[in-house]
Design a binder for these strands. Structure first.
Lengths: 338, 338
DNA sequence: GTGAAAGCGCTAACAT
DNA sequence: ATGTTAGCGCTTTCAC
């Protein structure tokens, strides 16, 4: 069934030279006579030669594959990150190989342990939200496969990490609410334990403190990232003894869930309760009133992560580094009191 | 830098047997003494042996990589399809390698020509909307690399194809509008030339005809798939001599664009102009009024495409086949007159 | 049932 | 500047 592809042997035979010369000419390394080199290139083109990655990979012990491990791809943020990753990977001739964990630490482990890991040149990972121990990552790094973490990074591992500026983004969000005149501000957060969730929490707390606003314990709720949780959290907030007049949600999906819940209760978003999200999902513009949010540089995070990883793969001694990309406040109707 | 991975040689040495036996034992093929087999398996486990895909691939002339070529991944439909693909690929031990064309035929060509194609065991493709000639696909198939097309299939190529039932989905959508009492029904379509766009058009026309409803030429608009085009098309519709009382959009994004435009003009969706989309994007539930639509079985399309491809790769004489998956009408507020 | 050896396509010493 | 050769890790005849 499988075709016989053209190999360097074929080129060598037709040109009456050795495979070594062909190999050298193809890669423009070592000293090769420019004439022979042109000849080889021409013949390769003519024969439609395509290098066999299995063969080069076997020799070089690499695959030109980079694995991308993340919770899901069916949301705006992640699909955009992947687009960024793919963009630079493609340019550099690397394949990106997708692994979806469904946000389950167990599946994450399975993937990392069982898989053809030896066949990845490096890994880009966004850890699952219930992932608590990171031994498997340590092991992989120890095996010589570089990992770059993005968005949800593993706390305690020595590896490059790329994040958005969760702290300042959150701070800015809450400050915006305060400037709009909201005072009783609640925060519906993500699962405890994730770094970026904590950072956003810290930004929230800091802004409240700096403006001498009290924060009640019952106004802070930890739960999942989905819209459903947003609805539930909002409903719960409505039960609290003192009802908050604004909600800062850890992401747009939860913010939207909250809006939907409040709208059902005939609460006027903005006027009675202000809402702000995080991400800048296209849905923000579609929901009514439109949702104020903090934009994350998703595409750039994807690009940078991939660049870092490629550096780790190719540069002998590229140092581990952490990068924090700025966010941007996008004001819309959901935080308008007027 | 690169670690020395455990090889079958190591196992053979430790067990004092030959690599051939190890190789045979690992794959439970040929006659191997069950005892030695168990020994090998145990030792492999113990040493944490992982097969080197480059090596097996080199021998078997395969890579366990399947390429997925599609216009974009940042929308609900495609990201869901990929999730389905990844699900079955993962189960069968195949990697999926992503190529994003940005819906450009030129980039599609580049990818298909330049890339490490020889290193793909097969391809899953959704053609870009401006892709007109299909020679490159023919060539690849001729080279022995199987292709399965999904969603946007190449018209005239002998290859397996998986689609949703665009014709009947459209028919059902339009019939629903008619049953709701709408009579002057417009269709904002995708770019002419794409098979699924045509099918939806045909379904639209057939339903109108069967119900003896006139269709005006000015009520049919071809343009792009994005929300912006939906807005533009709706505005254009408002200019027509007789204003339609309902719009069937080729997808949800255009439907939503249209809704946004009409809402700005203070036209009451449902009451004055009914709108129905296609896909069942989560946005349908978020926009207000909520959007009636025809659900596409995106996840299933992903799964089936991948299954078909794997069959083509592994079963000697798996016949080319076409599969059409059913759609489902989801009624919401945007088509409610009352 | 098992071993020896050739070879998949390519690269990298080592020669010349 | 180019050729010769060994070998990457694995599978697969072909012997025994």
């Amino acid at each position: 069934m499988k075709r016989h592809f053209v190999t360097i042997k074929d080129i060598a035979r037709e040109l009456n030279i050795s495979v070594a010369t062909v190999s050298r000419a193809m890669r423009d390394t070592y000293d090769v006579n420019q004439e022979t080199r042109q000849l080889v290139l021409k013949k390769a083109q003519e024969l439609n030669y395509k290098p066999n990655f299995n063969a080069t990979g076997l020799v070089k012990n690499s695959s030109h594959n980079i694995g991308v491990v993340l919770p899901t791809i069916t949301n705006y943020y992640f699909s955009t990150v992947i687009t960024g990753i793919q963009e630079v990977a493609y340019k550099k001739g690397y394949n990106i190989v997708l692994y979806i964990t469904n946000d389950s630490a167990e599946r994450e482990m399975d993937i990392l342990n069982e898989l053809s890991l030896g066949n990845m040149d490096g890994l880009l990972v966004c850890v699952s939200s219930d992932s608590r121990q990171n031994d498997h990552f340590e092991q992989i790094i120890a095996d010589g496969i570089p990992i770059v973490f993005f968005d949800r990074v593993a706390h305690d591992i020595k590896a490059s990490k790329i994040m958005q500026d969760d702290y300042h983004g959150a701070y800015q969000a809450v400050e915006h609410l305060i400037q709009q005149g909201y005072k009783k501000i609640a925060h519906i957060a993500g699962p405890a334990g994730l770094l970026f969730t904590e950072r956003r929490m810290e930004g929230f707390l800091a802004a409240m403190k700096d403006h001498r606003l009290p924060v009640k314990k019952e106004w802070i709720i930890h739960s999942g990232f989905s819209r459903d949780f947003g609805e539930k959290d909002a409903l719960q907030l409505l039960q609290s003894r003192t009802r908050p007049d604004a909600i800062f949600a850890v992401n747009d999906r939860k913010a939207i869930g909250a809006m939907l819940a409040l709208k059902k209760k005939n609460i006027r978003i903005g006027k009675q309760i202000g809402i702000i999200g995080f991400t800048n999902d296209p849905m923000c513009e579609i929901i009514s009133p439109s949702l104020t949010t903090v934009e994350e540089p998703a595409l750039e995070i994807g690009r940078k992560s991939c660049e870092f990883l490629l550096n780790h793969i190719n540069k002998k001694h590229f140092q581990v580094q952490e990068l924090t990309l700025p966010t941007k406040l996008i004001v819309r109707e959901s935080t308008m009191r007027g």
